[in-house]
Design a protein around this nucleic acid. Structure first.
Length: 423
DNA sequence: TCTGGGGTCCTAGGACCC
DNA sequence: TCTGGGGTCCTAGGACCC
């Protein structure tokens, strides 16, 4: 049996742990750059605010209902997530951290009553971290996801826990669920399924497996089998190695000039190199891209990207910056208002295993670069990110993301530690 | 004025091998 | 009249996830 533990309204719950006054009130969390609402409390959902609603489109609603809006605080969410996972780790040796707010636990072979056990898990997480969770338990991941959703919505189970096999008539329930509710079915697949008269989960479960394979491919075939309690998606206990690293941002204000874009791209390249080193990886390839806004239909649009192969794999910030800027020069066109840029490293490998270049005569530089990067990382770790930097990163913050409503990094910066006063 | 960021997997088609 | 059979690797694009 597999349990899916999912934190309820995770980002909102993290904020509420440190601002209990937000409890019971409508709360929304914004995407980076304070763009859209990407996490919602139950109260704001009830007011009809959909996932992904642009923030600037609902000022009246916010005022009228006194909705509390916050910028994303990923330092906080990341740390709270780590704590939740740590508590969950006490309950089973085999678990897969699936996302920042979800975790699969392998409960097969447990002799206890799973409902009781799961209630204990939920209670312990709440007590240890302040975060409320819902738990769905079933023979496959797909069904565990579904059970979790039903528990959360209060359709079945005891409010926060649902063990699939305790349902008297699961098929009756499946028949009431639209196929789009399933993990792995988005609107695209959902519409195609509806066209062949598969509109609820039961219909999909009973669909002809050969036909599904032929028309929709192996992904949906696996899903149908999982609905029939045949596990096809294994638990991944060891996180697989990263396959790519992406660093990109929308700008706080549109950028038109090359110098400003150069500064932004330098910062993204620097961040990418830091990510490489922190995961002990290096890259053989760098891709740099720039976009105008897809929403500015009245203005000329331009999207371009360039992929550059390096002579040999590297994790050196200076080399990645030089490469990225050379790429930028080639794709930059004047006369556009750029909204976003980024660096993609699509071809990663473990550091120390790279194939050296046959023709490079300065390969002795490698130890030097390594020492420099170690010092750089140590200084920036001790004194804060960007304490020392490459000149090309510049000093202007004009393009930095907007994050005007961000709460303090309560758990990751000493200056932000909450202070408790006892009267 | 204002619309996120970071990932994975699958498939089809092209290029190549013997 | 008539021109094989069986592979691998890479890439771009689409679909999906949180």
């Amino acid at each position: 049996m597999i349990a899916l533990v999912d934190c309820n309204n995770f980002y909102v719950s993290c904020e509420r742990v440190f601002q209990p006054s937000l409890e019971g009130k409508p709360v929304g969390i914004l995407s980076n750059n304070d763009g859209c609402i990407i996490a919602r409390s139950e109260e704001i959902k009830k007011l009809g605010v959909a996932m992904g609603t642009p923030y600037f489109k609902i000022p009246d609603l916010i005022k009228q209902h006194n909705i509390k809006i916050l910028s994303s605080n990923y330092a906080l969410y990341g740390d709270m997530s780590r704590r939740v996972m740590q508590v969950l780790g006490r309950f089973t040796p085999t678990m897969e951290v699936y996302s920042i707010d979800e975790c699969f636990l392998d409960l097969s072979g447990f002799s206890q009553d799973l409902t009781t056990y799961s209630n204990t898990i939920a209670k312990t997480v709440k007590q240890g971290t302040g975060i409320p969770v819902s738990i769905g338990i079933a023979p496959t991941k797909t069904l565990a996801k579904l059970a979790n959703k039903l528990a959360k919505k209060g359709i079945a189970g005891n409010g926060s826990v649902l063990v699939w096999n305790t349902l008297a008539e699961p098929d009756k329930l499946l028949a009431t669920l639209p196929v789009k509710e399933l993990w792995g079915i988005s609107s695209g697949l959902g519409k195609r399924l509806n066209r062949i008269r598969i509109d609820n989960v039961l219909a999909l479960k009973q669909a002809n497996i050969q036909l599904i394979r032929k028309q929709f491919g192996v992904v949906l075939e696996r899903m149908v089998r999982e609905l029939n309690e045949i596990p096809c998606i294994p638990l991944e206990m060891i996180a697989p190695k990263r396959k790519q690293i992406l660093t990109s941002r929308s700008f706080g204000t549109r950028l038109s000039t090359l110098p400003e874009l150069r500064a932004a791209v330098s910062v993204f390249a620097t961040r990418s190199a830091e990510k490489l080193r922190s995961q002990n990886l290096c890259t053989q390839t760098l891709c740099v891209f720039i976009h105008t806004s897809p929403f500015a239909l009245d203005k000329p649009s331009y999207n371009n990207a360039i992929t550059i192969s390096l002579d040999q794999p590297t994790q050196d910030t200076g080399l990645l910056i030089r490469t990225a800027l050379a790429g930028l020069e080639r794709i930059y066109r004047p006369g556009y208002e750029y909204q976003r840029a980024g660096i993609l490293l699509p071809d990663l490998m473990p550091n120390g295993m790279q194939q050296l270049s046959l023709f490079q005569d300065d390969s002795n530089d490698n130890p030097k670069s390594e020492r420099l990067m170690t010092v750089l990382d140590a200084i920036n770790h001790a004194h804060g990110r960007h304490s020392i930097r490459y000149a090309s990163q510049g000093l202007s913050a004009r393009w930095q993301m907007r994050q005007q409503l961000k709460s303090p990094a309560y758990t990751t910066r000493w200056e932000c530690l909450p202070i408790v006063t006892i009267n």
